[in-house]
Nucleic acid binder design. Structure first.
Lengths: 313, 313
DNA sequence: CTGAAAGCGCTTACAG
DNA sequence: CTGAAAGCGCTTACAG
């Protein structure tokens, strides 16, 4: 690998001067600059980001934790984060934790050693220690799509889950459903809990309570689209028909939800916008040397398709 | 951030000694070791991986390029790579290129600057310069799931595409199909090309040639499951029935393929095994300071479900 | 406008 | 068994 020094020797100048032309920050004589640029081109020199990071005490990388990349919502979140981060000159280190506490702490340790500048959490176990570990070391953290938190140092960017649940329940209620169940994702108890709370609240406003899924529910609200799609599979393999026997609602509006064989009624969330905002927040905080401490709710809208209908007589 | 020096001062020893106990590689007196360990615990010290990397001239990270994370096959590949890499102490830097040449070169530049120890390519544009750029800088590269290459320095780990296509065509042929078409993914021309070649060869052995998809094909072979599922959508929106009017075959056996509303006939590939092998190869090569130069084919098997049947009369 | 020097936080012979 | 010193490849005041 060629180094700054190699370029300097070739151009017959000092390391400082080469550094100055590369970063374009100090005054360099036109003629010197040209000589250095030629030397760079001839040697195919690329600055060593590691050395730069050491000096800068900043790795220019952020971490992201996603519970399950196989869920298109997280896939989109992940792609969005990577794009937004790259655009700002940051790399992203991913951890697929499946909300396993040990994997979470492993990731935290690796990230601390690698001195990530910030972390975006797309999902974690209930009561995870991950955020605190990071925050205590002055690493800014934002929770994407997983609700609020008691720690004021945390940034939060989320969907309006309560509003979404109200819209879903209203839709179902007006179709005549009175026996509603909720399927939650064992993986992500954190946010699952939140949507369930919104669901219960919306039911309560109508003097209803959630019932168990096998207890004659005529409508099932799932924590997300992939859960909803899996629920349809489970139901129909048992001989029930969706929506004739049971209505099913998802959350996220993943691309597949619009497929003609699925036609899932769901709530549209914007993973790309969410990731853009999350990266923005975390990078701003990192640059400012502070925590994020900012809370933001993204709008969300109900998309009615063909997995919801009137309850059977 | 506390440094080695802080720990050394606290323990009343030199930096060298602290380094020695941390790496456990040199002889250290029991009593000294205890003192140092206590100091580490008290300060919550974590070694700075950046400084270590600079010294070691190795970043302990690998890059992976995935065209489209929304495709569960790539999602699984990506998860697999990350897990396998983490287990070996490597971090992974992801690039979602969508097979865009400019994004590919951007990723190459970023990776070179960050001095990745190796790169795994899950998809790239046809004739991409990415591999050569990396190889020329002594970065080992393995192509996962995208066929061979003319560059002998490249590692290759792939499915037996030709064998798979032969099995698919045989299945369709024996059902009575004679008018077969292939849908290719514009994103991944590289591997798309390869499977298409295998498809053509299998047809040729039966004295058939591929026909255009809208030219009365009774069976459509897709480059992958997501393509197949999208094809079913397109067909059925036009009023055609799968498999009654047209049979459809995928490739990968993503989880969704088994869904009761999809029941896709497909070929099972093992993304996890593939990623494990790819990481292994690239890490071995990196440690040995050489290129991968190894080619390997993974077995694959046909899974017949309900999107294939006899052609209409 | 240019260069010598110090320093980022480690590791690694080497001397003692 | 322990520590002083050099060095990984940069950046950044600072002197000239």
């Amino acid at each position: 690998m060629t180094t700054l020094m190699d370029v300097a020797e070739r151009a017959g100048v000092s390391k400082s001067t080469v550094s100055n032309v590369i970063r374009g920050t100090a005054m360099v004589a036109e003629e010197t600059r040209l000589r250095v640029e030629r030397a760079i081109a001839e040697t195919g020199y690329h600055p060593n980001a590691i050395a730069r990071s050491l000096k800068a005490r900043s790795s220019s990388t952020i971490g992201i934790v996603v519970p399950d990349l196989t869920n298109p919502f997280y896939a989109q979140l992940s792609v969005g984060v990577e794009r937004a981060a790259n655009a700002l000159g940051y790399g992203v280190l991913t951890a697929h934790t499946e909300c396993l506490p040990t994997t979470e702490s492993e990731a935290a340790r690796a990230w601390i050693e690698r001195r990530v500048d910030g972390v975006i959490i797309g999902g974690m176990s209930l009561g995870a220690s991950l955020p605190k570990i990071l925050l205590d070391r002055e690493v800014p953290v934002v929770l994407a799509s997983l609700g609020e938190s008691d720690d004021p140092r945390l940034g939060v960017i989320d969907h309006d889950d309560a509003g979404a649940m109200e819209a879903i329940v209203e839709h179902l209620y007006s179709l005549g459903h009175r026996r509603l169940a909720f399927v939650s994702d064992h993986l992500r108890e954190h946010a699952g809990e939140r949507r369930y709370l919104g669901f219960k609240k919306a039911l309560k406003a109508r003097r209803l309570v959630p019932i168990a899924i096998d207890d004659g529910a005529t409508a099932i609200v799932a924590h997300n689209d992939m859960q909803a799609i899996a629920t349809i599979d489970r139901l129909e393999r048992r001989g029930l028909k969706v929506p004739d026997d049971v209505s099913v609602v998802g959350f996220d509006d993943v691309p597949l939800a619009a497929h003609c064989r699925i036609q899932l009624t769901t709530v549209r969330s914007d993973a790309v916008e969410m990731s853009r905002r999350a990266v923005d927040l975390v990078v701003q905080a990192a640059r400012g040397g502070r925590h994020v401490s900012h809370r933001e709710l993204l709008d969300v809208s109900l998309i009615v398709r063909s997995t919801t209908g009137r309850p059977p007589q």
